[in-house]
């Protein structure tokens, strides 16, 4: 019997409470006939930065780590390619994007963090909460927007908005008092954090991508398991955690938007009444253009040509975007 020390991501969010916790603490022992048990905590409870999870995982400080891949791109810029904003608007598209990127992610986690990928689960898509009239993407120009993740902030800047880097905790107050005009986060998180109290317009274009969480295991620990045990563990994660999180992402956005706007049925509580701003054809074109002409080429420089090419062949081919590569 193997006992795993598992570190999850944000303990206050549904991914942890509804999927991560039941999976590691209850389902895993059942699904593996008691071969695996787990002790679960989260990086916020440990008081460590989300960006440090894989660094510590590689050192063997715990067995399994889960964190938002975007948090760790400081150590691995090529990992930004897992979550390119705008290119996936539905859960299906996001799943296709992540699946296409998966072989890359496996190599990156292995080379950079001495880790084996067990699975990749999504957060709900990251949308834009604005205070004040916004009717299209073009209206973001000149606005002060708090982004999440480097590529999102770069995209916002390419669209003429001013990317402001402030802590998540300061967002509601800053929105209310006009320090910022808009902020990007998951629709569900924004709903439960009460961002609708301080903002009134909701842009559902996934400017912030999907913030996929990579579930990874220390490589030495993984290699120490028998082949059969390895397969069991991976199968359990795929079925008990990954598949369920993706299934929830499907209906989740619709419900979250209903809760935020009051249009449609909200199963999470009382609905707010934000104004839903649907992206126009024109908006999408402008944003994609900024993405392809500025944001992705810059990423190709950060990550290196080889990774950009590999991205073009896999993710790019799936979502229909090509990073211009210099040589």
């Amino acid at each position: 019997e193997e006992e795993l020390a598992v570190v999850g991501s944000w303990s206050s969010l549904p991914l942890y409470q509804d999927f991560t916790t039941p999976f590691w603490t209850e389902m895993l022992p059942e699904m593996t006939d008691g071969d695996f048990t787990a002790q679960l905590t989260s990086f916020d409870q440990m008081g460590i930065a989300g960006s440090d999870v894989y660094r510590m995982l590689g050192d063997g400080v715990f067995d399994v780590g889960q964190t938002v891949a975007d948090y760790t791109v400081g150590d691995a810029p090529e990992l930004e390619g897992l979550d390119v904003p705008l290119v996936a608007t539905t859960a299906d598209q996001a799943k296709a994007m992540v699946d296409a990127a998966r072989p890359m992610v496996v190599d990156i986690m292995h080379d950079r963090f001495n880790a084996e990928v067990l699975g990749i689960a999504p957060y709900p898509p990251q949308v834009v909460f604005c205070k004040g009239e916004v009717s299209s993407l073009a209206d973001l120009e000149g606005k002060k927007v708090r982004g999440s993740g480097r590529m999102t902030t770069k995209l916002l800047e390419a669209l003429g908005a001013e990317g402001i880097n402030i802590a998540f905790s300061e967002v509601p107050g800053s929105l209310q008092r006009g320090v910022i005009d808009c902020a990007v986060t998951g629709a569900g998180s924004g709903y439960s954090a009460g961002w609708w109290e301080v903002s009134d317009h909701l842009l559902t274009l996934p400017l912030g991508g999907w913030d996929p969480v990579v579930i990874a295991m220390n490589k030495d620990r993984y290699d120490g398991l028998s082949g059969e045990m390895q397969d069991k563990l991976k199968a359990a994660v795929a079925e008990g955690l990954e598949a369920k999180a993706w299934a929830a992402a499907e209906g989740g956005l619709e419900n979250d938007i209903a809760c935020l706007t009051g249009e449609g049925e909200c199963t999470s509580g009382d609905a707010a009444s934000m104004t839903l701003v649907e992206a126009t054809e024109e908006d999408v074109t402008t944003a994609r253009e900024a993405l392809e002409s500025e944001v992705l080429p810059e990423w190709a420089e950060r990550a290196g040509t080889d990774w950009a090419k590999r991205w073009n062949d896999t993710v790019g081919a799936t979502v229909g975007v090509t990073v211009p590569v210099s040589d």
Partner: peptide, 8 residues
């Protein structure tokens, strides 16, 4: 790793 801050 030549790590850079995860910021603009």
């Amino acid at each position: 790793r030549g790590s850079r801050a995860n910021t603009p």
